[in-house]
Write a protein that binds this DNA or RNA. Structure first.
Lengths: 138, 138
DNA sequence: TATTGTTATACTCTATAACTATA
DNA sequence: TATAGTTATAGAGTATAACAATA
């Protein structure tokens, strides 16, 4: 059978992205979080007091979709929400949230190392420039 | 605000993939097909008599998810299904299916050209090897 | 008014289980 | 039995509209 797509960079790009996301999800599974959830926790950890709306903008998640995820984190006592300016809720990690974000960050770094090492040594310096060039920013 | 992910190749890979898929979907929209649907039509055109199950394996689409898509193509008279060995249905493009697959292929080629040209000239020869290296094939 | 948080809703993609039809 | 097609279903992820709350 002839797969006419293996010569298309767009197809290879999608295949690479999907497989690496699955790989990362597999390593995050024991921590009880998906990739999006893990990213949110790390983002809140790096930006104490950030709002839901700002999280959504940075991660390209629409506010109505982010809201129930944040709510679950609050219920699980991983994120603490305090009143801010206007209707804003300032988000911060709880102590257990900090611990989990730490472990997630380790998995993120391990994943990046796996990707980096999969690239032939003479192309490694070009990895980030290449991926930035492939981004279509509208 | 600090986005801690812009240094992660995995994040850049996903961002690139998602944006390019959106770009391609935008160009396919006037043809009335999504990216997956377009791929199926081209695949059937290149492999006359292929089965649903084989299509699914080549495109990483599970049979239960592929089935209704094929059925819609048959209803729209883009694909013709004939009885084969066992329960197999042999799939072929109709005349209008051929015409549509031709236009889709042109859009695919145009998309690949856009991606190729977005890469700095000195990295273009490394594009396909890089993307193949980034694929985690389990 | 503009922005945030919130609810409802819907559409796509994906995944699993289980059924039938045929070799 | 094994494979193909089929149906039902459930879970992500994503999208829009609209409402409530606050500056």
């Amino acid at each position: 059978m002839d797969n006419p797509f293996v010569k298309y960079p767009g197809y290879l790009l999608r295949r690479a992205s999907k497989s690496r996301m699955a790989q990362l999800a597999q390593h995050l599974e024991p921590l009880g979080v998906g990739v999006s959830e893990a990213s949110i926790l790390v983002l809140v950890g790096r930006n104490p007091g950030i709002s839901q709306a700002e999280c959504g903008r940075l991660l390209s998640i629409k506010r109505p979709n982010l809201n129930p995820i944040i709510r679950r984190f609050i219920e699980r006592n991983l994120i603490i929400s305090t009143k801010g300016q206007g209707r804003i809720q300032c988000l911060n990690l709880s102590e257990s949230g900090e611990a989990l974000a730490e472990r997630i960050t380790q998995e993120f770094e391990a994943q990046e190392a796996r990707i980096y090492e999969a690239v032939p040594p003479h192309l490694r310096d070009e990895l980030v420039p290449m991926l930035n060039a492939l981004w279509w920013s509208q």
